[in-house]
Write a protein that binds this DNA or RNA. Structure first.
Lengths: 353, 353
DNA sequence: TTGAAAGCGATACCAC
DNA sequence: GTGGTATCGCTTTCAA
């Protein structure tokens, strides 16, 4: 490995001069010596040792990314966007899978601090609540590491310190989904929500309620089932709902919608003829399902890019917060899993079961 | 941030002593002082600065992971396994997406070297060939970074230096898939392969040929179409094959199998009645498709774990190679997309089109 | 059993 | 304009 020292030796200049040139603080250095240094660096194939740089500058151009599970397409798309943008700016990303565990979040935060990351991008583990979130938060503040939450966060009380959050407009997403079903004529719309303390889930639910309200439909708590964003909870939601009176299901993510599809199948219900199903996320697989899933598309990768960009700006600016925090808009994608309600069949079903 | 110096100050011991204790080279240090140090460390919430450690030890306990695209479920499962195992051993993973570009592979390798990673886990970008692979390889060797390839690699000529490769037994996978179809009675089995220079694809093809051979079926090159592992190439493969005489299609990954399904649909062919389809990968979605896909399951995450484990062992041992290089066995998962061939319909189809 | 000092590879301040 | 030197936080001889 060639070091700055080697260049100094080769060029008969001091390491200070070499360092200055290589970092472009070379205003006062004449072009002639500059060229000498640069050529020598090129010739010796010099690449700075980032450990050494980080040690003295306290900056590593490294981001820690904590997501619940990278196998989830949502997070892998997010990670892709983040990593792409980071790389374009010469930054690097450490991948962490929390497995939705608060305890592991904590471990990762400590580990990332040890590695000297400049910032942590955090997507909340689903067993987070306000209490244990405070624990993480104070740890991070303690470390003086910049912090940005992506999409999954809590409904923070008004007293809570300001936090950087880059997110999708889930209220709008929830509204769009419910509105679509209502426009088709549905009045009994079941929901499979996310974990109740996640703000995104609550936002979607608020959007759903707003749409009901706008359509003069009464909100029926009986039709709301809490899920956990995994496919199985879509299946079990169907089992819980099956005896209730409904013509459509709004699953708060596509994975659960797949589960709903699967569950409905076990009752010999066909989609959308018997039941309309709408998802949320627009995972790329949703398009190629048997019944292509109507869903809410989210510009996940774009958001990842935007979040990384914004975060890097924050870190570079040394501010705690920057204006223009991006908020990304979801979009309704109508495919084949939703249609007008079928009243007759609904009655038949409720009688039969 | 508390440093080793703070501990030294607090305990009235020297930095050296503190360092020795904290690194468990403490044989000669009496338990009494040891406890003092350890308690002080705990009290001050000490965590070593890994940049400093790395700078002197030349070891960072950091792995670089280069995959084509983390959004691909195969790679996200792989990454999950690797990261899990790494973390369990106190290691950390830098995520890199090559976008299947050799040029980016090169950039990443340089960047990772700068970051001081101890090893690079590499899954080949699909525009790799022997020539440009050599370029990467010599770069890495130059850097004296340990190197392990996962699953995607080339058919190296015998003269090529030995390389660490952790992989699935794709020959077996190809064999299992073809054998299954042959056992059902198929004799005209089309293939949609992966890129031809990837050894995994060739291995599957060899397995397929072996199965044909064992079943005394002649190999027909006309039935082999090269794909690129993306869904669209499954669709276009169908278009290329449609006038040929075949009763089954073996797609070399599930994504292409989805494409095949989609393509077959456009010809009004039903699965498995008209054509049997078998995939490869067993993506979680394959189970919940309209026609659940018969496929070859691969223990991807397990392989990721095993690869990380093996690699860490190599790095720790300071050997170039270790025995017991793992080879993981794929497994046939029979679902609904394969059945006995339907001769009559086949004839009808070839006449009609 | 403990401590002093050198050194890892870079930056940055302050002289010259 | 250029160079000397302290420093970042830690490990590692080598003395004491």
């Amino acid at each position: 490995m060639t070091t700055i020292k080697d260049i100094a030796a080769k060029t008969n200049l001091s390491i200070s001069t070499v360092s200055i040139v290589l970092n472009n603080r070379a205003s006062r250095i004449p072009k002639s010596t500059r060229d000498i240094v640069i050529n020598a660096a090129k010739e010796l194939n010099y690449r700075p040792n980032q450990l050494a740089v980080g040690l003295v500058t306290k900056r590593t151009k490294t981001l820690g990314l904590i997501v619940p599970d990278i196998r989830n397409n949502f997070f892998s798309s997010l990670a892709k966007g983040i990593e792409d943008e980071a790389r374009n700016n010469g930054w690097t990303v450490l991948l962490c899978n929390s497995n939705d565990s608060h305890k592991r979040d904590l471990e990762y935060i400590k580990m990332l601090e040890g590695k000297g990351v400049d910032g942590i991008l955090y997507s909340m583990s689903s067993d987070s609540n306000l209490k244990n979130f405070k624990e993480k938060y104070s740890l991070i503040k303690n470390f003086d590491i910049k912090f940005l939450m992506i999409d999954r966060y809590l409904d923070f009380p008004a007293t809570f310190p300001k936090i950087n959050v880059v997110s999708l407009d889930h209220f709008k997403g929830g509204y769009l989904a419910a509105k679509h079903l209502i426009d088709l004529g549905h009045k009994k719309i079941a929901c499979v929500t996310g974990p109740q303390y996640l703000s995104e889930s609550n936002d979607r639910l608020r959007g759903y309620k707003q749409a009901l309200d706008d359509g003069s439909i009464e909100y029926d708590e009986e039709l709301i089932v809490e899920g956990n964003y995994h496919i199985e909870s879509g299946v079990s939601a169907v089992n819980k709902l099956i005896e209730k009176d409904f013509t459509a299901i709004f699953a708060f993510n596509d994975m659960m919608a797949y589960g709903v599809l699967k569950g409905l199948k076990t009752y010999n219900l066909s989609i959308p003829h018997d039941i309309s199903v709408i998802g949320y996320d627009d995972i790329y697989l949703s398009e190629i399902l048997e019944v292509p899933l109507t869903t809410i598309h989210q510009p996940i990768e774009v958001m990842g890019r935007g979040a990384a960009k914004h975060f890097i700006n924050i870190i570079d600016s040394k501010e705690e917060f920057l204006d223009n925090l991006p908020l990304y808009s979801p979009e309704l994608i109508v495919r084949k899993s939703t249609s007008k309600p079928n009243k007759r069949l609904l009655n038949k079903r409720t009688q039969v079961i």
